[in-house]
Design a protein around this nucleic acid. Sequence first.
DNA 1: TTCATTACTTAACTTAAGTGAACCAGATAC
DNA 2: GTATCTGGTTCACTTAAGTTAAGTAATGAA
Lengths: 193, 193
Amino acid sequence: MQNILFDFIAKYISLTEDEKNVLLSLDLFHPVKKGTILLKKGQKSRESYFVLKGCIRVYYIKDGEEKTTAFYTELDALTPHCVVNNTPSDYFISCVEDSILLISNADMTVEINSKFPKFDIMCRMLSEELLAKQRIDFDEFKTSSPEQRYLNLLQKRPDLIQRVPQHQLASYLGIKPQSLSRLRARIIEKDKG
Amino acid sequence: MQNILFDFIAKYISLTEDEKNVLLSLDLFHPVKKGTILLKKGQKSRESYFVLKGCIRVYYIKDGEEKTTAFYTELDALTPHCVVNNTPSDYFISCVEDSILLISNADMTVEINSKFPKFDIMCRMLSEELLAKQRIDFDEFKTSSPEQRYLNLLQKRPDLIQRVPQHQLASYLGIKPQSLSRLRARIIEKDKG
DNA sequence: TTCATTACTTAACTTAAGTGAACCAGATAC
DNA sequence: GTATCTGGTTCACTTAAGTTAAGTAATGAA
């Protein structure tokens, strides 16, 4: 599990054994049970998450309905909005599967980053990369129909369609569960003809 | 114009006069005429933009049609995907109005950041903030209907609706220009009744 | 001035998503 | 065993967006 982390970090910066040991001494790794709610609406949190194994999900409750907007799986990093702005959270984060997460505290991160400027540089590279990647995702969403979005997801994250309930997938695609069912039936019908 | 920049930077870090002078010596400020294309699809670029005055726009050409996905106005920063990943650009960037932009080269940025670690920290803070903000925008888009999106835009960026052509606004909202016209007529009708 | 182009609107028709209800497993509780 | 709950599909109906085409107003070029 630690090697997964170090391999990931190695894509950005190189760590000495000492630096690795500092990281390991921090007690960052946490197993989390399916269904656990990591963050609730209205809470202030200082925690960031990095998924080593499993899947976590961001959702809103709007008009009494759950609206899922994001899934984070292996090697995905999430710093909630409320951590960055120090405001109460607008959304919930819950655990879709039994998972192993790296959970870091913002205060801790500040301390580490000031001791090891390398980490700050890595954080900058990572945020810039995520910002650009998310931009592309957003653009694809905007310029696609629900059906295209589904087909696109089938290409890019086929695992999600298996491991996540349909009604959560539907709102992730910006539609209702009934529409997702219908849309899938339509695609199968097309493939036949 | 320079003060606009320094006031912006002051929200993140404090600069000495020397540091300010280094920035000013770099010839970053550029007036850009309306209609200028700053980046074309397929190009590799190393340039980031910061809008001091005016408006620039990101758009794709998909199935022969322009699809506008973003507008950057006063105090917005944009580092294109192709700069981060050093790949050919998927999209175009053009200038909606006569504008004054701060244009910085990635190589130059790397040099400055290594000389002044402060800048690196500011870049990290800025990317994290933008990442979280964009996440919220994306979430709002996903969980709203076109009509709600339009009303939301009317609240948050009323200026955009005035300064940008309708057909560009439409694709920004994820719909066709005809639908935007209809949707606006519908809203006016509702307000009356 | 005239002609062409462009941006925007309107309308009729098509297609697909939203809505509400019924239905059908599969899982859990009693 | 039956009852219940949940997640998913299907159906009939409504609503809104896509499509195609036409019309209007403003802009710019010949």
